[in-house]
Write a protein that binds this DNA or RNA. Structure first.
Lengths: 337, 337
DNA sequence: TTGTAGGCGTTATCAA
DNA sequence: TTGATAACGCCTACAA
């Protein structure tokens, strides 16, 4: 911490003006004459005064800051959502505290505690893949603490979720593969405990049903969809009978699977077609370019933040709503036979 | 903010134990009997108590948190550095507040203020491209506030910097292109106001000199090295006489330039070879794969954080030092003729 | 081992 | 328009 922390009392003494007036002046209160204000402000600058936000927040019981918890900031989707969040928050004069759970339940719980004990005015969160119990949210919600879930919804009553239509777009993605002539479509799923992945898997299944293709459970492969998982999944599908397409619940797994397959002489899309999910920048540049699903990321951040502000303002209102945004299938080379 | 905030006084009243004892118990002080501790802790849980960190930080003048300012969290290099920072900080029981300047000087200044007025114990920063004046750091440094610069150094006296050997690796990268037979090597530079880019440019020049290749200023193109810049730069080099290679100060610009050139019938590396900088994941996957420079990102985060902790502990010591890490040239297809 | 009392820096209320 | 005073929630000498 600083050696020499100047407080309003130091300014007060230096000028012979009461500290309450100094405080008012520094907050630009209309109840201080312009002359005194000028004197105080210039003295404050001269002395290198800097407000202690901790004290101010403690006193006012308002922090003007919100917390954001995402699984990983390096994912393009999340950093774009964060961009939207920061823009909206900034306009409203709020600070944003960015945290990553790294998909760990324990870290997520700890971050909730830290943010909440630092009295952020609300939290925007996309829950970790490990999270199957929602008790740690329930407690905060009971206390009336504004939490808003985005992308990965929370199925607790009273939760506000902002998500995309995972079911519908997964249906479309799978349908697209079927229309390309694929009949044996494998699916890379994330943890089924997350509604997000459940919805994507259900969309996939619904498309198969519509076209009279049997659903085979061994074609549905669950993992954490990390880079490493993609390689294991690729090996796995080579052991399955005549897989001719993959619909993956994210790009990361699809990309590393494709790389492994390419290195092993499989042609994409001729032998196996691919559709990913998230539209990571890499998907447009790789060879072949990856058909994927583009989510309204920036927009989601903006909307989530303004919904959160609604909740912060009227503690009571707008609970238990779900806002659904429309994603878009971006067709590239990896899926066109 | 919460409706019903339980404080240590509420617990104190509920149990008929003084609040100071409650405070000690909740901090697991050895000066409270186990029996009382148990009683207090279980009551605290029952009542849904949660410590108010603001009050605690204000009182103790210690926040156990550090701030990190990076240009963009979405850059792979920075998110890896942050991973290293978080790991080290976590082990030391510190919280990390992540912020992005978005390469804006104004935002950077504001973030410094916000973090500092929230009394973080220290700041790790990689300065924005717009930053040419260092006055806003000087003031904090004078006050003895621990700041540590990583990747993009601050050339103020008394600054602690942790960087890579940009000059040396840029020399090597350029030499590599020369050894591939390239003679007309253009260079994408960032703002020359940043030492980082100056060093890279100097390394490039030194290699040309060593091999008796004339330095032509019109071959050195300065920009912010964003995706959009890459396209403009690509157009530009097409107007220059017989450019046969590009050494770019980051991957983003190199990648979009390559894409533009490919779309316009230029073959890479046959017509124009490329070397980038940063080893973004995309560089390994794209076609052709991009030769680039891999920085010790995670390690840099770890080292920077422990150096910062040193400064936090002994306010006086270890100023004005520069720690240099060694990067590595990763040779891929974009540079091998 | 526990209680008392005061203060961290700010702001809100009341009075002047 | 300004000043005096108390309080936000916590922690820490010091006393008991």
């Amino acid at each position: 911490m600083r050696n020499n922390n100047i407080t309003i009392h130091d300014i007060s003494k230096a000028l012979g003006i009461d500290s309450s007036t100094v405080s008012r002046a520094l907050n630009n209160s209309p109840r201080v004459s312009q002359k005194t204000k000028d004197k105080i402000v210039s003295k404050a600058n001269e002395m290198g005064y800097q407000r202690n936000s901790l004290a101010s927040k403690l006193r006012t019981n308002k922090t003007h800051s919100i917390g954001v918890i995402v699984p990983r900031i390096s994912r393009h989707f999340f950093s774009s959502v964060i961009a939207g969040i920061e823009e909206t928050a900034f306009d409203a004069g709020y600070d944003v505290i960015i945290c990553q759970s790294l998909e760990s339940f324990e870290r997520e719980k700890k971050l909730m505690e830290t943010l909440s004990s630092n009295r952020v005015d609300g939290i925007l969160i996309s829950i970790s893949m490990e999270t199957t119990s929602y008790e740690h949210f329930k407690e905060y919600q009971k206390q009336g603490f504004p939490i808003l879930f985005f992308d990965r919804p929370c199925n607790l009553a009273d939760s506000t979720n902002i998500i995309i239509d995972d079911y519908k777009i997964s249906f479309e993605a799978t349908e697209h593969l079927i229309q390309q002539g694929c009949k044996n479509i494998a699916h890379f799923s994330g943890p089924a405990a997350l509604d997000l992945y459940k919805n994507r898997t259900n969309g996939y299944k619904a498309a198969l049903i519509k076209y009279g293709i049997p659903i085979r459970d061994e074609y549905i492969l669950e993992s954490h969809l990390m880079k490493e998982d993609g390689i294991a999944l690729a090996k796995k599908i080579l052991t399955l009978p005549k897989v001719d397409a993959v619909f993956s619940s994210n790009d990361a797994a699809a990309i590393s699977a494709m790389q492994y397959l390419k290195e092993n002489g499989i042609r994409i899309p001729q032998d196996i077609a691919f559709v990913g999910f998230s539209n990571e920048p890499i998907s447009a540049v790789m060879e072949p370019s990856l058909t994927t699903i583009k989510q309204p990321d920036f927009e989601m951040g903006k909307i989530a933040t303004s919904l959160l502000f609604d909740q912060i303002k009227n503690k009571s209102g707008h609970k238990n709503q779900t806002k659904i945004l429309e994603p878009e299938l971006v067709i590239r080379n990896s899926s066109q036979k």
